[in-house]
Write a protein that binds this DNA or RNA. Sequence first.
DNA 1: CCTGGAGTTGTCCTA
DNA 2: TTAGGACAACTCCAG
Length: 473
Amino acid sequence: MTLKLGIHWFRQDLRLSQNPSLQALSKKVDEIIPIYIYDPKQRIGSVSKWWLEKSLKILKDNIEKKNGKLNIFIGNPIDIIPSLILDNKIEHFYWNRLYDHYSITRDKEIKSSLKLKDIECETFNGFLLNEPWNIQNKSGTFFKVFTPYWRHCNEITRNKKFNNQNHNIRFFDTNLKNSKKLHDLNLINKTMKWTNKIHIHWMPGENNAQVQLNKFIDHKVNNYSIGRDRPDNNLTSKLSPYLHFGEISPIEVYNKVNSSKKINLQNKEKFLSEIGWRDFAYNLLYYYPDMIKNPIQKKFNNFPWLKDNKNLKKWQKGLTGVPIVDAGMRQLYETGWMHNRVRMIVGSFLTKNLLIHWKKGEEWFYDTLVDADTGSNSAGWQWISGCGADASPYFRVFNPILQGQKFDPKGDYVKKYIPELNNVSYKHIHNPWEMSEQDQISSGCKIGKDYPLPIVDLKETRNRALSAFKTIS
DNA sequence: CCTGGAGTTGTCCTA
DNA sequence: TTAGGACAACTCCAG
């Protein structure tokens, strides 16, 4: 008797638990051949490469604990998959779906070629609470505004039955021919000092994702509603990279939080809606597939963005002279992550005070964030720059001094990432250029020497942005 | 098809 | 010092 074999294709679902494709396939076949295909043509940031390497290593180990082997390939899946099927007499080929244009196009092509060969191909939702085509407003189209979207989506998700059981998964125990070593992907570039420090702050992998979720539920979520806005504490869930790589199921996150009796309603709803934002971003990406590159509001094609590489570089390095902006940019560079509130502040500063195209910000974030994600990243940048579907009104230009004073009142966050300002008093921590000569001497921080003067005048550039918006309306 | 209320995350000015 | 209104106009969405 021969074994009935099926392939599960891992993509952004690097987990064994609560993985719908793996679950379904294990009911169908005797043993599962798990594969991962690294496609050099698919966009991936530098820091994401670091995370991916770690994550694949853990996945590989977890599969080996179940006496299986993870098979890694390099190249275009469209070329690789047909020969895998042929060589190994595969009759079932399963995966969990993705929602960006590149993946959708590729997956469609693969699915139809498998159908032609009479291979059973099934795909699943393992990445979102609800897939875009299942969420419609009463006019029968997709939602463009978050609040009504989430009311609807939340209702559906709350009533979904959640199967907490994991069917036993049996893996095929030998590597396929031509499969590569993880090392061959060359994901971690040794010369890049960047990623050297990331491991201090992050532990990828599905086991760590569970630890992080439990920690969040036990110690953080009950202060979430207000606390999430404060970069000087640590009350956000930090689940974003795990969700991006699929090391944890968003439905599991939703259900564990939703069913917890310890969490008060306001904090619970606030957190769940943040998980909803992730779905909403993918809803937008699905219906505006080119939003990665182009503004959803077409009039923004005429927006007078400035090409200013000098200021862009200063923004990237955290040398703008505006403390809360610089602290955020340095946190990003150092840890691969930035607090959500600060992402908005640096985004507003780049697109409104510096008038630099949001795309430049999107690219930098994509390269440097551990949670760099096609949907959330482009939706976030379109929102903050004002060109998104449901964007911030144009007159809402953040004042980084006020934001700093409001959300980092003692300057703890700023000081953590900008040691130059360590001895500056809290009165001037967000506007150190207004210190007197005397204050600059006593705090050991001479503005313009130890720490830069602001590269732009905040008031002037605010007005410049407002007039720029008038030109396109 | 029409209607009215609402829209993540603000800031500034004036009284 | 603080609270309230202005800042645009438009599109979305539900009834």
